[in-house]
């Protein structure tokens, strides 16, 4: 079966200009550079990486809030990479987006009912009463009180607002939802509510999802497969369990190892048997992510990589299958290896 979404060679370069009147181009931020992946119907793909890795830009390219510099975005067989407004219209209802900030992504002057019905109204779906019924149904689906349909966003807490955002995304019964950091602005106790809800909806409604987040533990909870990005590229992609347990790329390994883990029972605190360190090999990366304006030659991760060798500076490692690759595990590294236990 053809995948629902097939992205290949995707790139977005933002020109950097200097000067106000006669601006000249002095370079380009390669926010996304040669990114490719697929999402099948009903599948959830997690996209993780640190700030500036291009994960959010990728999400915006796929929903065509941005136009790519290069590459193809095949949605249900049709290339939408450079589709115009008119060609995109029928797709708008089939791909929806959930945003990070539940405070700024809802219009404060519209009622919840108007917000949720907006995508339906703009696509001319349903009658007025039909839309109203749909809104009430959606409120229930996301766990909100249908009686609150006439309230305004400010009357809701952060978690409830994110539920409204999800209801709005679900209104047109989309096949694909791109969720950009949907829980990172929320407190943990609320974050768990939203994660559970997204998981349930994704599975029950069979919606494909591109789940963009920086939190590896959250991504693990909602994704079937996971792609790790670094400086505009995918460095590793695999099914969930493979990625979290048998990652081959040193960056993925470092990311996983840097997550401060709750590890009670072994004792905690500085100068003791440190809980989070006990029994786990820790990798510390030095320095920060380099500027995407001027990324390192060859492998972009080499400046922080513990395994970096000469070949890494000279040659960019391709994203290739590991050992046969029957399981779809791809890595972009000259020296892929499991972490020694």
């Amino acid at each position: 079966m053809n995948p629902l979404l097939e992205v290949s060679g995707l790139a977005k370069h933002f020109p950097v200009r200097r000067g106000a009147v006669l601006a000249r181009r002095i370079g380009a931020v390669k926010a996304v550079d040669d990114v490719g992946f697929t999402v099948s119907r009903g599948e959830s793909l997690g996209l993780v990486g640190e700030s500036g890795c291009g994960k959010s830009t990728t999400g915006r390219l796929i929903t065509r809030l941005l136009e790519p510099t290069a590459g193809t975005i095949r949605y249900d067989g049709q290339d939408i990479a450079h589709a115009g407004r008119r060609e995109l219209m029928p797709l708008r209802g089939r791909i929806q987006m959930v945003f990070q900030d539940p405070y700024s992504s809802l219009n404060p002057r519209h009622t919840v009912g108007e917000i949720i019905a907006a995508p339906l109204a703009s696509l001319g779906i349903g009658s007025r009463t039909g839309r109203r019924d749909r809104v009430l149904e959606l409120l229930e689906t996301v766990g909100l009180d249908a009686a609150h349909v006439h309230r305004y966003p400010h009357e809701f807490s952060g978690g409830q607002r994110q539920r409204i955002g999800v209801a709005r995304a679900l209104a047109t019964e989309p096949e694909l939802i791109v969720a950009d950091e949907p829980v990172s602005a929320l407190d943990v106790s609320i974050q768990a509510q939203i994660v559970n809800m997204l998981r349930r909806l994704q599975r029950e409604l069979g919606i494909a999802m591109l789940f963009i987040a920086h939190d590896l533990a959250v991504v693990r909870q909602v994704s079937h497969r996971v792609a790790v990005m670094y400086l505009g590229r995918i460095v590793e992609i695999a099914d969930r369990d493979t990625l979290y347990e048998r990652s081959q790329h040193p960056y993925t390994q470092a990311l996983l190892s840097a997550v401060p883990e709750l590890d009670a029972g072994t004792g905690v605190g500085i100068g003791r048997e440190v809980g989070r360190g006990a029994g786990r090999e820790r990798i510390r990366l030095v320095g920060d992510v380099p500027s995407p304006l001027n990324p390192p030659s060859g492998c972009r991760f080499r400046t922080r990589c513990p395994k970096a060798a000469e070949v890494c500076a000279a040659q960019e490692p391709p994203l290739v299958p590991i050992g046969g690759g029957a399981d779809g595990h791809l890595t972009a590294c000259h020296f892929p290896a499991l972490l020694p236990l």
């Binding site: 943990v188 106790s189 609320i190 974050q191 768990a192 509510q193 994660v195 559970n196 998981r199 349930r200 939190d215 590896l216 533990a217 959250v218 693990r220 909870q221 969930r240 369990d241 979290y244 996983l256 997550v259 883990e261 709750l262 009670a264």
Partner: peptide, 18 residues
């Protein structure tokens, strides 16, 4: 503590929010 997702828990089980 229960609501925090970890790298060790069962990823197929729901989280336990407050």
């Amino acid at each position: 503590l229960r609501s925090v997702p970890t790298l060790k828990g069962d990823p197929d089980a729901d989280l336990t929010p407050i």
